[in-house]
């Protein structure tokens, strides 16, 4: 008896060590990835690296068109995915009746979240590039990534709305508000923290996504910026940039990684460092938002 208790206690402490070990293994891998990339890439990081275009000479090459491209593509992505995703989330949580149609939509969203990202790229190649003749443009890339992150935004919006207790809704109805007034004045403001967290995480995913953009043909040598959206003469605003070719950070990095020369690998590490900083900063922002809103509302 005594022996068995001792054996079980030993087993427990052994597992404690094993558990901590496996957790640390994952964290050490992450850390060595960051350190390795920083050590290799840091020497190449300079103001010129951010303001030069891609080049055949590794020491002259930079990420100007890549980071501008990433920003413009993510802008289009956000403009598509945020309204569509939040609206879908609101509909499913607040409006939808429990019937077969709702069930189909729900199952469908679960499945969308599970299909590989590269299949979105194949769909975009068939539909946006060839069917709608949008070509290899910023708008194609933005729409593709927008559809890709849509399920993430829908799911987090629904989760955020679900945490609001029903007495808030009932109080609002009792004062005579309509459904939309309740949603607009109460549900959306109270769930905005959760929704924002989801949006930021989804956008960070979009910034780092490479595969679907490769299939729509983004791997090209781009040594210029898109057309500026504002002009000196009327009508002052131009949407020509939407149709311009582009490159983005992860594709620029992929391009450099897949070259055999060692010099370009240093560029890849530097681009990876910038990309990693961007996504980790966005994720830190998301954690911060979640933390702040959790303190703000207590039901």
């Amino acid at each position: 008896m005594q022996k068995q208790v001792e054996r079980l206690k030993r087993q427990d402490s052994v597992f404690w060590v094993v558990g901590l070990g496996s957790l640390l293994f994952a964290l050490v891998t992450l850390l060595s990835l960051i350190i390795d990339m920083a050590m290799t890439g840091w020497p190449r990081i300079s103001p010129a690296f951010f303001t030069s275009f891609a080049s055949r000479f590794p020491e002259k090459a930079g990420i100007f068109s890549a980071w501008v491209g990433s920003l413009t593509v993510v802008f289009v992505t956000a403009a598509l995915a945020i309204p569509l995703g939040v609206a879908t989330g609101i509909y499913l949580e607040e409006y939808a009746r429990k019937n077969w149609l709702t069930k189909i939509i729900e199952i469908n969203i679960l499945n969308l979240a599970g299909i590989p990202s590269i299949t979105y790229g194949l769909m975009a190649l068939g539909i946006f590039v060839y069917h709608f003749q949008l070509g290899q443009s910023i708008i194609t890339a933005g729409l593709t990534l927008g559809l890709l992150i849509l399920p993430i935004i829908i799911v987090t919006t629904r989760e955020a709305i679900r945490t609001i207790p029903s007495h808030i809704r009932e109080a609002s109805y009792a004062l005579g508000s309509t459904k939309w007034q309740t949603v607009w004045n109460h549900i959306l403001p109270y769930s905005s923290g959760g929704i924002l967290t989801g949006v930021v995480i989804a956008l960070s995913r979009a910034i780092g996504e490479t595969a679907p953009l490769l299939t729509v043909g983004a791997l090209t040598f781009i040594a210029f910026l898109p057309t500026p959206p504002v002009m000196a003469e009327p009508p002052f605003v131009s949407f020509q940039w939407l149709m311009d070719p582009y490159t983005v950070m992860p594709i620029q990095m992929f391009n450099w990684v897949s070259r055999p020369q060692e010099e370009f690998h240093i560029n890849a590490a530097a681009a990876g460092l910038v990309l990693l900083t961007m996504t980790l900063l966005l994720n830190a922002t998301a954690i911060y938002i979640r933390y702040r809103f959790r303190r703000k509302y207590k039901w």
Binding site: L30, L33, S204, F254, V257, A269, G272, L276, N283
Partner: peptide, 19 residues
């Protein structure tokens, strides 16, 4: 731990090939 899922996959590719 969830930051592991936030790292872009192209960065993991670099890590696998060159580290």
């Amino acid at each position: 731990l969830e930051l592991l899922a936030a790292v872009p996959t192209v960065v993991y590719g670099y890590f696998a090939l060159l580290f």
